[in-house]
């Protein structure tokens, strides 16, 4: 039997490929099944990450919610979701048919709420669907709270510590970091100190786009988070920094999920070579519904041609 060169492991979680959906870009439940190629998508994915959920339902931000910028997408959706109760009852069970590890992205306004939400999820996940929890300490569209958590290493440590204490080792705890900081390794180290199993980076970069026809910002929320190819070098840099400067990242005891602007297989390889064990793909998926299959095939061909595996390529850019 041929060895699966694409497989990777995040701590104890085995993924058949390093590709994941980026939170917020593939829905809460079975939304993918509307596509005629969804089986191919599932075949190409290693894990599925849900859109962010909160304890109480959130209506989301007023329109306009997205505006395209050059090679990027500025959004301020505002974490519209039906709340954890509806999520557990009506949405999460639908992801069972994906037959993939499911990672639930969570957001909250306070440290305690993060802990409550994570505990509620795990305690009420009757079918043990959830393989991991991704803590969103970095949503730029949550008033002041999201960015406060994400940019303040002490707050990151407390949030991660609280969540970790509440869920223990039952599921993987992933911390999603914001790029809106001077030095990404600060919050990264804090998350590790708090006990995170995995780091994911980057969330969107803050930005504003102005409509010159009416002299007003396009977005209803004024500013938003920038994603898409425009931010890829920033994401690759931050993964590179963490891998280089944080021993836990380099020895892969705290692996990294690289996210930000990936639209081709070589983009994904850049993240992997910078030090990411897995990668998240989001905005590019809106542009091409076949992106997951195409990237998986691209990586697979690359591995074949170079007779290597994804795991061997992790951190390769660091030259050892």
């Amino acid at each position: 039997m041929a060895i699966n060169k694409l497989k990777v492991t995040l701590k104890h979680l085995r993924l058949k490929t390093p590709l994941m959906t980026a939170s917020g870009t593939a829905g809460h439940g079975d939304e993918l099944t509307v596509l005629d190629n969804y089986q191919e998508i599932l075949g190409a994915l290693g894990a599925f990450v849900t859109k962010g959920i909160t304890f109480k339902p959130r209506k989301g931000n007023p329109k306009i919610r997205v505006i395209e910028t050059r090679m990027g997408l500025l959004n301020s959706i505002g974490l519209q979701n039906s709340g954890v109760k509806v999520f557990l009852k009506d949405e999460l069970p639908l992801t069972l048919q994906y037959k993939l590890p499911i990672i639930v992205n969570i957001s909250a306004d306070t440290v305690e709420e993060f802990g409550e939400l994570a505990a509620y999820l795990i305690d009420n996940d009757v079918n043990s669907i959830i393989s991991g929890i991704e803590i969103n300490v970095s949503c730029p569209n949550l008033g002041e709270h999201g960015s406060i958590f994400g940019t303040d290493p002490k707050a990151v440590e407390r949030v991660v510590g609280t969540v970790k204490k509440r869920v223990g080792d039952k599921v993987l705890v992933i911390t999603k970091l914001t790029p809106n900081v001077t030095d990404i390794t600060g919050p990264a180290k804090a998350a590790i100190a708090g006990g995170t199993d995995v780091l994911s980076m980057i969330n969107t970069l803050r930005g504003i786009a102005i409509d010159t026809t009416n002299c007003r910002p396009f977005l209803g929320n004024i500013s938003g988070g920038l994603s898409g190819p425009a931010i890829k070098p920033v994401g690759v840099f931050m993964v590179y920094e963490c891998y280089k400067k944080i021993p836990e990242c380099m020895n892969k005891s705290v692996p990294i999920i690289g996210i930000g602007g990936i639209s081709t297989y070589s983009d994904a390889l850049e993240y992997i070579m910078a030090g990411a064990t897995a990668v998240g793909i989001g905005t590019a998926w809106f542009v091409n519904p076949r992106i997951f299959e195409e990237i998986a095939k691209g990586i697979s061909d690359y591995l074949g041609n170079n007779n290597t595996t994804v795991e061997e390529l992790v951190g390769k850019a660091h030259g050892h």
Partner: peptide
Amino acid sequence: EKRMACGIGVCLSCVCETKKPGEAESKY
């Protein structure tokens, strides 16, 4: 008609505010 990103219902960009009869609050 609204600005859209994904077109398939996952990104929640192209919302309009609606309130159906019997619903207590409006939603996007």
